[in-house]
Simulated scan of single mutants.
Amino acid sequence: MNWFTKVRERLPFVAKRETPDNLWVKCPRCQEMVFRTEYEENLSVCPQCDHHGRIGADTRLDQILDNGDVEMLPAPKVTEDPLRFKDSKRYVDRLKAARAANPHNDAFTAAVGTIKGHRAVVGVQDFTFMGGSMGMAVGDAFCAAAQRALDEKCAFICVTAAGGARMQEGILSLMQMPRATVMTRRLREAGLPYIVILADPTTGGVTASYAMLGDVHIAEPGALIGFAGQRVIQETIREQLPEGFQRAEYLHKHGMVDMVVHRKDLRATLAQLLEFLAPAKAA
């Protein structure tokens, strides 16, 4: 306890100032402390080093879609805990904890709206919900969003952020990969654009399915994109991986993604793509 604290305790007329716990955000890359308001006004991008922070589904939809007529698609109803899975915790308990900390029932949320006048369905995978893991609810939500795009005859935009398949659902989670793949094929057959935005991180079974089946792939700067982890790959091939391996810029350089786009330019970029791929605007 310093001398000022001691003096203040003896002087009752000196009010103690309360400082909110969430006033600052610490950048995970440069370790700088940034005012939360400044950080959020900058679209959750560090103003010091340009690190793109992870954001939730609602924030992402607000950043992409026009204000006004936005329709949230209903969350699918699936069988919960079909395998009655338990590791260190029961799966049902993990779901309850994730739902208590998030505004949505699972990791994939979709909405219908416009992007600078262009009608589109936008689906967002939220990494804060059990690592954005792909289970039956995510698969159903993805397929429902793609079907809505087919019904509306508009583009489908998917923002991916996931650690892969949800292990607590076993083979049922892996079956979402071919289901989603079929829906991307239907979009292509209908001549409707399917655009993927690869956010940090996009890995595992999501990368092995719908994340890499888009007509256009856009990555956010610095996003981790891959299937297996770097350590697993290094131990398998017994070679040191190059610097920046599995990062957005490395994948862009080697032709795995079409472009790396800063978050502040993402909405304008999507509008340009829709102008080219789907020129008809909403009435």
Rank of each mutant, 00 (worst) to 15 (best):
G135E: 05
T202D: 08
D265L: 14
T236C: 05
R29D: 11
V7W: 11
S173H: 09
R267I: 04
Q176H: 03
Q272E: 14
F227D: 14
F127L: 10
T5E: 13
F35D: 13
Q48G: 04
K77P: 00
N2L: 04
G139F: 00
G132H: 03
I225H: 00
E18A: 14
V14N: 01
F108Y: 14
A98S: 07
N22E: 12
V216K: 13
T114G: 00
G68D: 08
C143F: 06
D93F: 06
H52K: 10
P178E: 09
M212H: 00
R148S: 03
H254G: 02
M212R: 07
C49A: 08
H51D: 09
A161L: 01
T109V: 15
L95T: 08
E235R: 15
R60Y: 15
A165H: 02
R148H: 06
A155I: 03
Q234A: 10
A57Q: 06
D58Y: 05
Q125H: 01
Y250E: 06
R267W: 02
S173Y: 09
V70C: 09
M183G: 01
P82A: 08
G135R: 04
V78H: 12
V78Q: 08
D126L: 01
F127D: 00
E239L: 12
F156V: 10
D200Y: 07
Q240A: 13
A98I: 01
S133L: 11
K116H: 14
P279F: 02
F4W: 06
V45R: 06
T184H: 00
C49F: 11
I157S: 02
M167S: 13
D258Q: 03
K253N: 09
P82W: 04
R166F: 15
C143S: 15
L172H: 14
G164A: 07
A155W: 03
A283G: 15
F35W: 14
K86G: 01
G205F: 11
Q234P: 01
P82Y: 05
R179T: 02
I115N: 02
Q234E: 15
A110P: 05
Q63I: 09
G68A: 08
V124M: 04
G164V: 08
V122H: 02
D50K: 14
G244I: 04
D215H: 13
C158H: 10
S209C: 02
G226L: 03
M177L: 15
K116S: 13
T160I: 03
N2A: 04
G164C: 08
V34D: 08
T160F: 08
A283P: 13
A223P: 03
L73H: 08
A98F: 07
M177P: 00
A149Y: 04
K281N: 07
Q63R: 15
A162V: 02
I115Y: 06
Q176F: 01
R148C: 06
H51N: 13
R60G: 11
V260N: 00
R8T: 05
P76I: 09
V34T: 14
K6E: 08
A199D: 14
D81L: 09
G131V: 04
Y194R: 13
P242K: 08
V70D: 03
P193F: 05
I55A: 13
D215N: 12
P221I: 10
I233S: 00
I197S: 01
A280F: 03
R17E: 12
A75I: 02
G113R: 00
Q125F: 00
E38I: 12
N2E: 07
K96Y: 06
V7S: 08
D21N: 04
E220W: 14
